[in-house]
Amino acid sequence: MSARQKVCVLPGDGIGIEVTEAVLPLFDTLNLPIDLSFGDIGWSCWQKEGNCIPDNTWKLISASNATLLGAITSKPLREAEAELSPALRGTGRVYVSPVIQLRQKLGLYANVRPVTDVLGDDRYRFSVIRENTEGLYAGLDFASIPPGFEAVLAERERNGAAWTREGPDDATMSVRLQTRAGLTRLFRFAFEHAREQGFDRVTLADKPNVLRYSGAFARDILESVAADYPDIHSNIDNVDAVALWMVRRPERFGVIVAENMFGDILSDLGAGVMGGLGLAPSANIGAQGAYFEPVHGSAPAYAGQNRANPSAMFLTVALLLDHLGHGQAARAIRNAVSEVARSDQRTYDLGGSASTREVAAAILQHSLDWAERLDGATAHRAPPAVKQGAHA
């Protein structure tokens, strides 16, 4: 690849800064044709400016091929207001998570969470794909019953609804919004991802036996999209059953796709199946770009202690490199992370005592070793097959 690419790096808050700094030497170590630019994001921006993504950061993002994001701090509304600089308090500033802003403004509708057997014997490999912009997290969350819904609830109450309330302010309401356009692009992304990754199954995790109408709506769209991918089997499972089988038999899955809240829960469960959030990367991809982030939080209690696991950030960079067309380097990084995670050089979350910088140095060296091994004829070799059990 001759043209150099641009990556915007936003280190974030807390341990996000530490793991980002530990991983960045990778770009030079592997001699990647990528130029890095750095921007500000997160809680300190909110405190100083009442804006957690400054205008200059948006400009850097728009001028880049992709964005690498460190963990960011997010707090409830009351705490957010209290931590503003005194001059900004009471001026109507509203805190909106940087993650939500990025996903909505850039149209990043697909959150991709690979789940791989980093600590074991490569028994399983699958992806959870979460819808990012609709579902129960669409923003239709109300402090009281909106007037337009009052007649609907009143009718249900006349027909014997189990809930008890005295008026519109005696209840709250959240609405699960799913659109035909949103589900169609999500399901098509899931099938394309399955084909690219060599998976033979797409499973929609939903609750159609309870959410009957929205579930039927999603089913019709899934079946319509699936008709264009006859080589890939598709099915719908109850989300609770999917959670059970992710723990007991993760090898049965290829791609799990779900609306926003179900996908949020299942993707973190996938991190637990892997061994913890310290191993879990993610990609957010859509029509106008992509950003990549490890899914652990900013963990302010551990900031500055040189204890955080950098593995998730290394695996996140591997996803970024795959997206930019550097598949061989991405494979070298994944192999390196797995080797180090299975060694005695582990951070505290994996039962070891190694520091962030020690583990990062080991992964950097193994990445270079693997890159040299993969150079040449084996550079484009297919990834090793994953054992898959019956799809019962």
Rank of each mutant, 00 (worst) to 15 (best):
L24F: 07
L24G: 05
P25K: 08
P25G: 04
F27E: 06
F27S: 05
F27H: 02
F27I: 02
D28V: 03
L30Q: 10
N31C: 11
P33A: 09
I34K: 05
D35P: 03
D35C: 05
L36M: 02
S37G: 07
F38N: 03
I41Q: 00
I41W: 00
G42A: 04
G42L: 02
W43H: 11
S44Q: 15
W46T: 08
W46P: 08
Q47R: 13
Q47F: 06
G50R: 11
G50M: 09
N51P: 08
C52F: 06
C52M: 09
I53P: 00
P54Q: 07
P54R: 02
D55V: 14
N56G: 14
T57D: 01
W58F: 00
I61Y: 02
S64P: 00
S64V: 07
N65W: 04
A66S: 09
T67S: 10
T67W: 05
L68I: 03
L68P: 00
T73V: 04
S74P: 01
K75D: 09
P76Q: 04
P76F: 06
L77F: 15
E79N: 13
A80R: 01
A80F: 09
A80Y: 07
E81G: 14
E81H: 12
E83M: 13
A87W: 11
A87P: 10
A87Q: 15
L88A: 14
R89C: 07
G90V: 02
G90T: 05
G92K: 09
G92I: 05
G92W: 05
G92Q: 12
R93Q: 14
V94I: 15
V96P: 09
S97A: 11
P98K: 03
V99C: 06
I100P: 00
Q101K: 10
Q101A: 13
R103K: 14
R103W: 08
K105R: 13
K105T: 12
K105M: 12
G107C: 08
A110N: 02
A110P: 01
V115H: 06
V115E: 02
V115G: 04
D121M: 11
D122Y: 06
Y124S: 00
V128Q: 03
